[in-house]
């Protein structure tokens, strides 16, 4: 498969009032053509910052201190502002979290959707607006011709998110970065937006990086999943690998706290105790260790490397070291292992 995007050893720092926050501490992943990669993690884990670094849309106090972002082999971090402007909204575009605040309140939506076309392509205003109308129809805005001249406040949250998506796809981008596109929406609308994204991916053949903290959403859309914690990836693999053969205790914790169809009414949903570490002074060892019921001495001393689980499945936990003791994951995870066996997988 074609790797169209590859992030290598990304480090991002933020200068704050209290000191330098090491928000991203060595993240590497890649995106294959046509696939959907989900990046999962709780708030503050650095997923948004990671994808914003790809487009270099960080806040002013943030700097990419190390790493490469290879787009078709070209390092985007070496490009000038002007060259980046040409890529943004054209080859790589982004959908934002909050549709209520993402649209310019004083510009008609027609103009907002047509804007990327006018920036990147040599088209007339009329043609751009015509194309904007088509795309609005495509994303499911009813009666787009009439509503082109309306302002954002005249639309509901779900419709606004459709408009934000229309802006992102109007120029048929190769890569679509969706930063928690459903978080601010009602559950019913969430499903509609996910379906829309899947449908659009088929129609225009774009690759998607999908950021979310909600594993339930991931199952419906992703091909591969990367789990992030405290500025680092802890596990990545195919959807089945992550959902039915998770290896990292943090992934266990995430899955254990998610209700499934098998969850009985009497079962309690579990949560992961504690809070993520302060990234002003990142821990020396595994950042998850203080919250990890399976933590070992080595976790506090040394960061675990990625251990290979299967061909495309890796996890960064010392539990996979040959010298590590055999531990019993939570019951719900054991159930998942059972399912994995049925799917023909090889549980370690």
């Amino acid at each position: 498969m074609d790797k169209i995007l590859e992030v290598k050893d990304l480090h991002v720092d933020f200068d704050t009032y209290n000191g330098v926050v090491h928000a991203i501490r060595g993240v590497s992943f890649h995106l294959n053509a046509g696939e959907t990669l989900a990046i999962v993690g709780e708030s503050g884990s650095g997923k948004s910052i990671t994808v914003r670094s790809i487009l270099q849309l960080l806040a002013k106090n943030g700097t990419i201190s190390k790493g490469e972002v290879l787009y078709h082999g070209d390092d985007l971090l070496q490009k000038s502002d002007k060259e980046m402007d040409k890529l943004r909204g054209n080859k790589i575009s982004m959908i934002f979290q909050d549709p209520m605040t993402s649209l310019d309140p004083t510009m008609t939506i027609g103009k907002q959707v047509a804007e990327p076309l006018l920036i990147h392509n040599n088209v007339s205003k009329k043609d751009a607006l015509k194309r904007a109308e088509e795309v609005l129809r495509l994303v499911g805005i009813p009666n787009p011709q009439a509503r082109m001249n309306d302002y954002p406040h005249q639309f509901s949250g779900g419709q606004r998110q459709r408009i934000v998506i229309a802006i992102a796809i109007v120029d048929y981008p190769e890569i679509l970065i969706a930063d928690e596109p459903t978080t601010a929406l009602d559950v019913t609308v969430q499903a509609q937006i996910i379906d829309l994204l899947k449908e659009l991916q088929q129609k225009i053949g774009t690759s998607i990086i999908f950021i979310t903290h909600d594993l339930g959403v991931v199952a419906g859309i992703a091909d591969r999943v990367a789990v992030m914690y405290a500025g680092r990836l802890v596990e990545f693999g195919s959807v089945n690998d992550i959902f039915y053969n998770p290896q990292h205790p943090y992934t266990w914790g995430l899955l254990d706290s998610m209700p499934t169809l098998d969850t009985n009414e009497s079962d309690r949903l579990n949560s992961i105790p504690g809070t993520p570490p302060n990234l002003l002074n990142p821990p020396k060892g595994d950042a998850f260790a203080p919250r990890n019921a399976y933590a070992m001495e080595i976790d506090e001393e040394q960061q675990p490397p990625f251990f290979k689980v299967s061909k495309h499945h890796y996890a960064a936990t010392w539990l996979l070291h040959p010298n590590a003791p055999k531990v019993t994951p939570p019951a719900s995870i054991l159930n998942r292992f059972e399912k994995f066996k049925k799917l023909g997988g090889n549980v370690k």
């Binding site: 105790p273 504690g274 809070t275 203080p290 919250r291 019921a293 399976y294 933590a295 070992m296 001495e297 080595i298 976790d299 506090e300 001393e301 040394q302 010392w318 070291h321 010298n323 590590a324 003791p325 531990v327």
Partner: peptide, 18 residues
């Protein structure tokens, strides 16, 4: 890595996490 490093700590010092 020596084997004794892989002793589980359990959650005795989880109190510090806050």
């Amino acid at each position: 890595i020596p084997k004794e490093k892989f002793r589980l700590i359990h959650d005795e010092n989880n109190k510090d996490q806050e």
